[in-house]
């Protein structure tokens, strides 16, 4: 099939699916459903585009939609602090890192094989569909409250900050995380550094 045609078909299907998701959410759950449909479409559509796109730069940018969508889901769930952290760290940090990776490696526009992608989707989703039923029945036993009994979703930044520093809660993990980040930083520099011999000119034999 012609690549341009492939592209058009893919995006048409994707747009339809997005419209269907948003519309379905609006119909069943009103405004909340609309927002959920929108964010879920962002999330899943972004990752689908990421898999689909030939150019790794496009894939990386479409991943931004995924991260923003997840941030939107966090807002919907009432965790605005997490949403902000998601945007800051994923979009601002990790995505930028990925783009650096893209810049430092050569482009390769021929590596995507549709058969391979399609096979993987069938393989994974076919299997996942098999177990979905079972998972759903398993979650029934979880201590999940029905939506009408939920407490008001409030901003809890202060509680998070206190929990981080409370000696009986997360202070050890917090400090360990700080340590881990430092170590990761140093290790990344160490691993990625160029050895001095790389810079030495080749001897003319």
């Amino acid at each position: 099939m012609d690549p341009k045609l492939q592209q058009s078909v893919f995006y048409a299907v994707l747009a339809l699916a997005v419209v269907a998701a948003i519309g379905g959410g609006l119909i069943t759950h009103g405004a909340e459903g609309l927002a959920f449909g929108l964010f879920a479409s962002f999330t899943l559509g972004g990752s689908l585009m990421c898999i689909w796109e030939r150019s790794v730069v496009r894939s990386a940018f479409s991943l931004m939609a995924t991260f923003m969508g997840v941030a939107g889901l966090f807002v919907l769930l009432g965790h605005d602090f997490l949403a902000m952290a998601q945007v800051l760290i994923y979009v601002g940090g990790i995505l930028a890192l990925l783009l650096f990776g893209v810049m430092l490696t050569p482009p390769d526009l021929t590596e995507r094989k549709l058969t391979r992608v399609g096979g993987a989707i069938v393989f994974v989703f076919g299997g996942a569909g098999l177990v979905w039923n079972h998972v759903q029945s398993a979650t029934r036993s979880l201590a999940v409250l029905p939506p009408e009994e939920l407490a008001e979703a409030t901003t809890q930044d202060r509680a998070i900050g206190l929990a981080f520093l409370h000696p009986e809660q997360y202070v050890v993990a917090f400090e360990l995380a700080a340590f881990l980040l430092t170590v990761a930083l140093v290790a990344a520099v160490y691993i990625a550094r160029r050895r001095t011999e790389d810079f030495e000119p080749e001897e003319a034999a």
């Binding site: 990421c50 893209v102 590596e111 094989k113 391979r116 992608v117």
Partner: peptide, 11 residues
Amino acid sequence: VCIISRRNILY
């Protein structure tokens, strides 16, 4: 799917 289908380590 992204991990196993694409042949670029960035994926």
